[in-house]
């Protein structure tokens, strides 16, 4: 039981990270019908920017770790969001009318550009996050000791996701995003500036990915320029499991994947952890080709 609960909470924590990244894939796909393959690298950029800010301004000494982390996280989100907007302008917008394959190649090119830039700037070795920032304590529930960090991570992810959900469901811009995802032409006939919507989506998705990056850095204590590849892939799987293009689906898919992976690592084999993710993907796609919450999208792809 102890092992189960530990793995479950750990799975939820890592799953919420997958969910945050998956939201970027799914929102961009929703509006553009395009997989932003450079999204995982935006996550890495978030992790590295977080590292730089944490060690260079001395903000932690001035305002204390919690406030410093909060400020830095917001800065990282803003910056990675701006990089996302730039990415869309440079790599995708000129190809809007071109063949779908052109955009895929452009996405892969952007991904290589980002990861190599990180390697040139920060080096190819693992870099270590400052490790004295987060509480090392545990809270005890029914004799189970759960690390406070894990709960914080879950909490922050859920707050971010709740904000996004409210934004998309309740605001005028959020409704316009949903409309553009359903029918771009009709959305334009409503007077919605779809280019602006695309920029907003390319800000929000990468901003959430950047937040996930700094959270992974803090949780695991180290970052690497290639980390975005595996996280990106897992999050993409999570988005497909939940139903690509569907926002609650990405959240659900991330959590499911995190939990199954974590339980699988404990009860089946740690070495098979990544294979389990693909196994889950294959099973879900056989049972429900559109993903758990997805609608039929096959004809759009």
């Amino acid at each position: 039981m102890e092992l189960f609960i530990q793995q479950l909470t750990n799975g939820l924590a890592i799953g919420s990270i997958y969910a945050l990244i998956a939201l970027g894939y799914t929102m961009v796909y929703g509006v553009m019908k395009l997989i932003n393959f450079a999204h995982g690298d935006l996550f890495s950029i978030g992790a590295y920017l977080g590292l730089t800010f944490l060690i260079s301004f001395g903000l932690v000494d001035k305002v204390g770790a919690p406030v410093a982390i909060l400020i830095i996280m917001l800065m990282v989100m803003g910056l990675v969001g701006l990089i996302g907007i730039l990415l869309e302008r440079v790599a995708y917008r000129p190809l809007r009318k071109a063949d779908r394959l052109a955009a895929v190649v452009s996405a892969l090119g952007a991904s290589i550009f980002f990861s190599n830039s990180l390697m040139l700037i920060y080096g190819a070795k693992f870099r270590v996050y400052p490790h004295n920032l987060l509480p090392k304590s545990y809270i005890t529930i029914l004799e189970l000791h759960i690390p406070v960090v894990r709960i914080l991570l879950l909490l922050v992810s859920f707050i971010l996701m709740a904000c996004l959900y409210l934004f998309v469901q309740k605001t005028k811009t959020g409704t316009a995003i949903r409309a553009a995802a359903i029918d771009q032409g009709a959305a334009r006939l409503m007077g919605i500036n779809v280019n602006k919507i695309i920029s907003i989506v390319f800000f929000i998705g990468p901003a959430l990915g950047g937040a996930a990056g700094i959270m992974v850095g803090l949780y695991y204590g180290q970052v690497n320029f290639l980390m975005g590849w595996l996280y990106g892939l897992k999050a993409f799987i999570a988005a497909v499991i939940g139903g690509i293009g569907n926002i609650p689906g990405a959240m659900l898919g991330g959590l499911i994947l995190g939990v199954i992976e974590s339980l699988g690592a404990a009860y089946i084999s740690f070495a098979w952890k990544d294979a389990i993710a693909f196994f889950v993907l294959i099973v879900i796609l056989i049972v429900r080709p559109t993903g758990i919450l997805g609608e039929r999208v096959a004809e759009k792809v």
Partner: peptide
Amino acid sequence: AHDIVKLGIAQVPEGRRVFSTLTVQENLNL
């Protein structure tokens, strides 16, 4: 297109093209 709507030209397109997974009220708001 969005500036043309602002000038006062609205279109009800062929095939209706309502936003089917949004509510009637949300469609009207849009």
